[in-house]
Structures are given as C-alpha cells and as structure tokens.
C-alpha cells in the first residue's frame, strides 16, 4: 500500500458513488437516516452517563457518585497502573515489531517465510487457549504478580498483528529506496534507520494506537498476571461489578473516567485507526 493509498484508506468516501445521484431530496433522506442511526447508537451511552449525575439515576442533579469514585475506589492508583503497563507494552511491541516487519518485507533471509508464516498464524490463537500454560510458565520464573511479567505477556500477544501490519506496510514501499541507499554506500541497518523508519511513521502510529487500546482495555491478562492490590482500572472496575455496597452509578462514573485516556487517543488518531483496520487487505 503506497502512502497515498494509505491516505485514501484513511476514509474518504468514494466520489464516484457521490456522483451517482445528486438530488437534493436524496441527500436529505440519507442525512436524516445517518442522524437517526447515530442518535440510536449514542442513546444508551448518553442515557447512562446522564443518569450518573442524578440521584438514583432519575432524581435531581447530584455529584455524589462522582465524588464517591474518588473516595471509595483507588482510581488514581489504578489509572497509574494502567498507564504504566500500557506504556511499557506499547514500547516493547514497537521496539521488536517494527524491525521484524522490515526484515520480513525487505531483507529476504533464509527461513523468513516460515517464521513469518508461524508468527502471523499466531494472530488466530484465542488468548484463553494459552493463558493457562503461560501462567504456570511465568509462575515458575517468579514473574506472576509483577509488572514485568504482565508486560511480557502483552508484548508476546501483541507482536503477531503488529509484525503483520508492519510487514504489509514496508512491502508497499518501493525496493528502489533500498537499492539507491546501497548505491550510496549505506549498509542495511543504516537504510532501515535513516530511510525506511521515517517513512513508516504512519504505520508505526497505527500499531502503537492499536496496542494501546488492546492493553488499556484488556481484562483477562491483567486480572491474572498483576497483583490483586495493584490492578489496572479495567480489572478494578470489573471486580466491583455486582458489589452491592457500591452504588451502580459509582461504577458508571468510574467507567467514564477509565475511558477518558483511550477516548483522547481515539480522537487524536482516528484516521490511523481507520487505516489500520484494512492495512492488510490486498487486492
């Protein structure tokens, strides 16, 4: 995929379809339908968030539930844990996946096909299928209940998709870039660092954002591999669900709070996420 295709995939609707019919009445019908669908999709979210500002969800305005979140739940600690685990995992995945993607795409070494094939096949594996042996392996080396162990698991699980996306992206960059680098006397490491890496920034951002969302929003891995007293916000909230001492709207407030960082990331990088969805679809 060339970078211009990448821009295109970042979501401009097809102009030729737009040209298919251009009647004002039709636009009105289509626009109205979109508004109705959008409103229907947003309704549950807005309804529940609004309810968290009202006593028992239907009464007068109150900030009680929002105060209670900060008072009764260790949200700051949990947010910090989420941030720590997410930052380390994203960094880890990027550091190993970007060079690997480049190696598979451009530096045809013996065995590359097989190793790449196995790596990509790992994208299919349900986490539940491997989580049990993973747990006992890490327990043997004393990494269960630690940030390091948790990050390792996230990195291992994140690599297959990231390598696949990076390789697809690097394949779309012309081989001539490598050749002219060689002619200029640069080695392969130098070409990767100075020529290819800067060109791959959009794809690197995409896999970084995908990994950020996956780790921040994960439940199972953090639940099993982090110590109970210092959990991520997702696990913290999930374990409070069904706790009858705590008002359900306190949980809603906590959920909204936990969703703020990923929402910010989403708003900043929506275009990259859209592109990332279909980066691997070939003609």
């Amino acid at each position: 995929m060339s970078s211009s295709t990448y821009e295109m995939l970042a979501g401009t609707p097809s102009p030729h379809l737009a040209r298919a019919r251009r009647r004002p009445g039709r636009h009105l019908v289509a626009s109205t339908t979109l508004v109705v669908i959008g409103a229907a999709l947003l309704y549950p979210l807005v309804d529940v968030v609004v309810a968290s500002f009202r006593a028992q969800g239907t009464g007068p305005f109150t900030l009680e539930y929002w105060r209670a979140v900060f008072r009764d739940v260790p949200v700051w600690h949990q947010l910090a844990m989420s941030a720590l685990v997410t930052a380390c995992s994203v960094a880890g995945v990027l550091v190993v996946s970007v060079p690997a993607g480049y190696a598979y795409a451009k530096l045809h070494f013996p065995g590359a096909r097989v190793v790449f094939g196995v790596t990509v096949a790992c994208m299919m594996i349900p986490v539940e299928s491997i989580v049990i042996p993973e747990y006992s392996n890490l327990a043997k080396v004393g990494l269960v209940g630690s940030v390091l162990g948790t990050v390792l698991v996230f990195v291992g699980l994140g690599i297959p998709l990231s390598v696949f996306l990076m390789a697809s992206y690097f394949k779309s960059l012309p081989d001539a870039l490598v050749e002219s680098g060689l002619v200029d006397g640069a080695g392969h490491v130098r070409i990767f660092r100075s020529v290819m890496l800067p060109l791959a920034i959009p794809a690197i951002v995409t896999i970084g954002v995908l990994q950020f969302l996956a780790v921040w929003n994960d439940l199972l891995i953090a639940l099993l591999f982090l110590p109970i007293q210092s959990q991520t916000i997702a696990v913290g909230l999930a374990s409070l669900q069904g706790n009858h001492i705590l008002n359900t709207y306190v949980l809603v407030a906590g959920s909204v709070l936990s969703a703020i960082p990923p929402m910010i990331v989403y708003m900043m990088f929506q275009r990259h996420l859209v592109a990332g969805l279909t980066i691997g679809v070939h003609r």
């Binding site: 690997a100 045809h108 790992c122 993973e134 392996n137 698991v153």
Partner: peptide, 28 residues
C-alpha cells in the same frame, strides 16, 4: 550482509513469539 541484518532485526520478535505464544500452545 542483507541476510545477516535480516536475521538480527527479526530475531527478538521471533524469540518472544516462540516463547510466549507458540510454546504455550504446544503445552496446552
């Protein structure tokens, strides 16, 4: 030279996937 650099760049990811995904699936 290209092959050597290729192996070098691909190795860390391959080792992590082998240890953290492929090996556990074999164990499972």
């Amino acid at each position: 030279g290209r092959q050597k650099v290729g192996v070098m760049l691909a190795l860390p990811a391959a080792v992590l996937v082998a240890g953290l995904v492929v090996f556990p699936i074999a164990e499972a």
